[in-house]
Design a protein around this nucleic acid. Sequence first.
DNA 1: GTGCAAAAACTTGTCATACAAGTTGTCTAT
DNA 2: ATAGACAACTTGTATGACAAGTTTTTGCAC
Lengths: 254, 254
Amino acid sequence: MAFKKKETPPGETAAQNVAALITAEIFDQFDLGLQLPSETELAARFKVSRVTVREALKLLAGRGLINLSRGRRAAIQQPDGAMFGAFLQALIHSDPRAVFDLTQVRRSLEVQSVTLACRNASRSGIDVVTSALAVMREIAQSMPEGEANVEVGQAFDHADVKFHQSIALAGGNRVLTFLFEAMEGALIESFKRSRRFQKRSRDTLLSVCDEHAQVLEHVQLKDERAAIEALLALIDRSEANLRSSSGMNVRSRM
Amino acid sequence: MAFKKKETPPGETAAQNVAALITAEIFDQFDLGLQLPSETELAARFKVSRVTVREALKLLAGRGLINLSRGRRAAIQQPDGAMFGAFLQALIHSDPRAVFDLTQVRRSLEVQSVTLACRNASRSGIDVVTSALAVMREIAQSMPEGEANVEVGQAFDHADVKFHQSIALAGGNRVLTFLFEAMEGALIESFKRSRRFQKRSRDTLLSVCDEHAQVLEHVQLKDERAAIEALLALIDRSEANLRSSSGMNVRSRM
DNA sequence: GTGCAAAAACTTGTCATACAAGTTGTCTAT
DNA sequence: ATAGACAACTTGTATGACAAGTTTTTGCAC
């Protein structure tokens, strides 16, 4: 990897400058997993101390561009939705009403996701969705009959989100897949909050699984209309829970 | 700001640990502009060196959670779409076909945006959209008659994107607004690429303005169907340009 | 007391050096 | 040829120092 040398920038710090230079190189040859030179080497190239290089690398790591781990060199990484997700969580934390903004957006993205899955899903893509559903069922079965277990409920929510992600993946749109990944954290967080005072029995979870199974079934048959209908029914119920538990007044459906 | 103390984490590094602790505190009290304690103070609290604290702060700065500048303490910052936008640009850079993934997502977000604007737009929200359109017209008028100017064209694209952002803003959904901000960079980039060999005359730009004016008009009248129709016509033409210039085969419309 | 400029006190940015801790490649003994 | 010890490399953290900004305090003139 060939880095260009550059003197000193005006108002910016050296670390920012180095970060920008490395970023440019990463964009130039965007090979995932490719390793950057060692910190000492970078320091020599840019004529700065290793500390400065390290701070630049931390900046890039914060942006999700590279992966740092002890003993190993920095590796170019595909950014995931983590950072965007962090923003969403912060937004929702600062104003809980923003959850509904999120679910509103989510609804239209889900519709598109299912539509694309109907059109583009390969056999292997469907398999992933199927196994995601199987995981949901498994977790639902593990819910004790008598008293509802909170941890199992959270695991179920996690599997639920994964199911929707797998549909986005099957649809083949990378931007959409990314967005679903990014929304994951915020969605689970909002689920958790909405279910603080709301216990769910095993039967409840299993019925949720059945709803999801219907969506999957229609996707397999490439029946867009039916799939969307099943999906919307599912999301409506989920949002209704969210609203009732948080005591917000209902917004018009979109 | 009261930080909790914590011993040592398992596999993670001290810097990551400190970053997580600070993040938790930031989420706890999410006041924009609020200043964090000084690095030395944080180092004392977490019983780590200042170097470690600094690396943790760089991580957070990379995520857009805080703002660092020399001599001043770190300030809590509202993350903007920059990082997400950077990801999109990287994605498109690595695989130009991803542009169509983006436009596909954009289409459905635009539809929702216009729908919400029809329902929720306040008088002042509409005013912002109107002025955005005025800017577009102004730039279009400044396009020289004889030969097409590339810079004017880019300024026009910028104003175009701003118009769509203002509609999202008028719709009142914060997540949607954020997403439009985030897509800005990638959209302009893709526009730029698609118009490398394609000159646009003043009349062309003015007709684009007219198309946008129609959308605005229907939004003002709260006619959702007509607004969406006008919007889709507009987007279709834009995407057709993108496809023809990049020589890709056409995907099915969604 | 007020206003303002100089100075002191903080605070962040960068450097050099040292060592701990993890990873990778090499080399030998079997 | 393989396993394990060992050396070389690499990243993570600490300490101390100083440069370069920013904020607060001080002190003087009025």
